[in-house]
Amino acid sequence: MADLVLDIKDLVVHYETEDADVHAVNGISFQLGKKTTLGLVGETGAGKTTTALSILNLVPNPPGKIKSGSIVLDGVDVLKLSQEELEKVRGNDVAMIFQDPMTALNPVMTVGEQIAESVELHEKVSKQEAMERAKEMLRLVGIAENRAYDYPHQFSGGMKQRVVIAIALACNPKLLIADEPTTALDVTIQAQVLELMKNLIREYDMSMILITHDLGVVAEICDDVAVVYAGRIVEIGTADDIFNHTHHPYTEGLFDSLPNLKERGEELQPIKGLMPDPSNLPPGCSFAPRCPYATDACSKKVPELRPVGGTSSSKHMVACDAYDDPKFCLRRNKDGK
């Protein structure tokens, strides 16, 4: 337990609007060790961002409501903290990088001021010291110091994202939450930014939660991966487990919908159907209506996460009741090996 940074248990978050009760997160549990990077993978609307916002207790309320569960961050349950205590945690212990660097910076403040703002807030330093620190952070992310006095509109998208990273890292957080940090960037810049994040995390001994729907990015930097579907974790394990010993039909579907480098002519096989409406989830396994392996039993009971065993690591768990049958095996695993 000592080397855990984050321990989420049975997190349930609903968005209660006038006409529907949206079940965004339905009992997510996971743990994150020191210096590890966890990738949260899933479709749009699967509840990844909501989970991340819950860690900072920032779910917009109303309409969002954290119904139950606990989020223990470095020994403290963030859901039980007062507003003032939360403000101390935010930015200091946990920092967040948002999706779109174009809008994540305040257009009327210089980037230096924006980095210094966070430093000033959490550490007892003078304005000058904070500004010095801001310049140092800029240098760290590969931007010339003298640009601290420039405004965001004078930066390109990739550089803005670097600035955003600099802001997030300025106070040396223990945990960095990156919400699709590269989605808005083009591929070459993506690679640069990912490389930068990877190095900085190693250098600063930070843990990171990387939210993405890009499996390539996950393979690149994540130690652990959690696949999220309709507000539940359907498969969790090390990157090796997920990529090489895929066990959940949904994860398999995700891989099948990627272009295959080896067989270029092959058609893509998207997962049939759409994500269920989170305000009206199907009973039992929420993936059952789209699952090629589904049986009647699947829509009766919500599957629990179960250890996979076998060749996988001890961390590898899957939420699929088809494994009640010891002979059950995904198509991918069958003809793959």
Partner: peptide, 23 residues
């Protein structure tokens, strides 16, 4: 998003309004 990220940074609400929203 920069307002959201100021929350994530731990800024108190009044400061967010005064420094980020009104300007």
């Amino acid at each position: 998003e920069y307002v959201e990220s100021s929350y994530a940074m731990g800024l108190p609400t009044w400061k967010i309004i005064a420094k980020h929203i009104l300007p």
